[in-house]
Amino acid sequence: MKILLIEDDLMIGQSLSQFLKGEGYAVNWCQNGKSGSEAIKVETYELVLLDLGLPDISGLEVLNNIRAAKIMTPVLILTARDAIDDRVAGLNAGADDYLVKPFALAELEARVRALLRRTTGHTNSILSNGEISLDTVSKILHFREAAFTLSAREYAVIYALMESPGKVWSRAQLEERLYGWQEEVESNAVEYHIHQLRKKLGTEAIINIRGLGYRVKKS
């Protein structure tokens, strides 16, 4: 779950990045509109968090650039502008949701989860293949009669696998879900987190496809 954050305010950007990483998201943070417009073109993101009041070009111009490039990644606008006209302009330009500052971090994450569910075709907060279930609100993993709490990166790995049961995820693809730009990719990190998950679920729950990657069983 990789998120592009486009926010010029240093304190807000740091706070949101830290919070989202702690919740299992990988975050790339741009502090102006031009770099944000370029970032969305060179990497794939599950969501964009976009401030309107950027120092170089406006957030609305960034949004127009994104949609003009036929990039349909969901965009959640974060702004202090609470006038109806501003909200309508953002939604008409192609935004998927709107959150007015200041906001509670719990509400932000709830809206993030809702947008991710919409884009992946899931109707509720439970990802399941019939054997394993992941509650994306509580971040509790259920397997048979047991329930397990997860670290942020364990959650990121199992979320990816449970998003599309049966799909094979390469090591590089899973690393993309774990790390943002400024974070050093740890050696064997994916293998370590898979190992930790298998300790909870058993060795058969996550299947290693030699030379390709990992998957969970399709329901």
Rank of each mutant, 00 (worst) to 15 (best):
K2W: 11
E7C: 05
L10Y: 14
I12C: 12
S17T: 12
F19V: 00
F19A: 04
L20Y: 03
E23M: 09
C30L: 09
C30Q: 15
G33P: 00
S35M: 11
S35Y: 05
A39I: 06
K41D: 10
K41S: 15
E43K: 14
T44R: 15
E46F: 06
P55I: 09
G59R: 03
L60G: 01
I66W: 06
R67S: 08
R67K: 10
A68L: 09
A69V: 01
K70I: 03
T73P: 06
D82T: 11
G90H: 00
G90Y: 00
L91A: 02
L91Q: 01
N92G: 05
A95H: 02
Y98C: 01
K101I: 10
P102N: 11
F103E: 11
L105R: 12
L108K: 06
A110Y: 09
R111P: 00
R111K: 15
R113M: 07
L116M: 14
L116S: 09
T119G: 03
T119R: 14
G121C: 04
S125F: 08
L127R: 09
S128R: 05
S128V: 00
S128E: 10
S128P: 00
V137K: 15
I140R: 15
H142M: 09
F143K: 07
E145P: 04
A146Y: 11
T149C: 07
L150W: 04
S151K: 03
A152L: 00
V157F: 00
I158Q: 02
A160R: 08
L161K: 02
E163F: 03
E163N: 11
Q173R: 14
E175S: 10
R177E: 12
W181Q: 05
Q182W: 08
E183R: 04
E183Q: 13
E184G: 07
E184R: 06
A189K: 08
Y192N: 13
Q196M: 13
L201H: 10
T203Q: 15
I207G: 11
N208F: 14
N208M: 09
L212A: 13
L212S: 14
V216D: 06
